[in-house]
């Protein structure tokens, strides 16, 4: 692209504007990494909780499995920062997406801290905002499996109010498989 002044007519100006907008239109980052990382971490935590509560005496220590989320958060932040530097551009939707997930994390954080007060029935509370963030991410990147993943979380979240306090961990684990892992692997495949 050169720096021409005189021979640029209004039609050409409009073409430049629409060309450039089209160039950046498909630039939304759609990394499967986060869904796979968190899918495995939370599935493992849920299965761990179910196992400790159902088959062992270590019920007081069981919630410690959630501390696995701390390294997962650190990995997430390092990865996100590297991706942003690598992409060379930050779109408005990237920014919205980032704040959507940070907002979701803030929403569910107290339930992990004060989980004991609600008999560790955290899945009923956390799956709903996770469903909303997943559903909206699917809308943002226009990826149907993620939209269906979000709906899965909403159904699972509702189901957690019906099943027993121990079984809700199994519901949570299954929701993670269909809400995060399956769409995550499909997204990875589509990006390749």
């Amino acid at each position: 692209m050169e720096t021409k002044h005189d021979n640029l007519n209004p039609q050409q100006s409009l073409e430049i504007i629409s060309d450039m907008i089209n160039q950046v239109k498909g630039n939304i980052r759609s990394s499967s990494f986060y869904f796979l990382l968190w899918g495995w971490v939370i599935t493992f935590c849920n299965v761990g909780m179910y196992y400790f509560f159902k088959y062992t005496e270590y019920q007081r220590q069981a919630p410690l499995v959630w501390t696995l989320c701390i390294p997962a958060w650190i990995i997430t932040m390092i990865y996100a920062s590297r991706q942003e530097k690598k992409a060379g551009v930050v779109t408005h939707l990237d920014r919205i997406s980032m704040w959507l997930w940070i907002g979701m994390a803030i929403t569910i954080f107290p339930s992990w801290i004060f989980g004991e007060k609600i008999n560790w029935m955290v899945n009923a509370i956390v799956l709903m905002p996770i469903g909303m963030a997943t559903f909206l991410s699917g809308i943002i990147i226009r990826f149907r499996p993620l939209i269906l993943g979000g709906i899965t979380f909403w159904i699972a979240g509702t189901l957690c109010y019906i099943v027993g306090p121990i079984e809700q961990y199994l519901v949570g684990a299954i929701a993670m498989v269909f809400g995060y892992l399956v769409p995550g692997y499909l997204l990875k495949k589509s990006n390749q």
Binding site: I16, I17, D19, M20, I21, Q23, V24, K25, N27, G88, V89, V90, T91, H92, D94, R95
Partner: peptide, 9 residues
């Protein structure tokens, strides 16, 4: 036009 469509580039 690009900068109008993104946060930063």
């Amino acid at each position: 036009s690009i900068l109008m469509s993104v946060e930063s580039a």
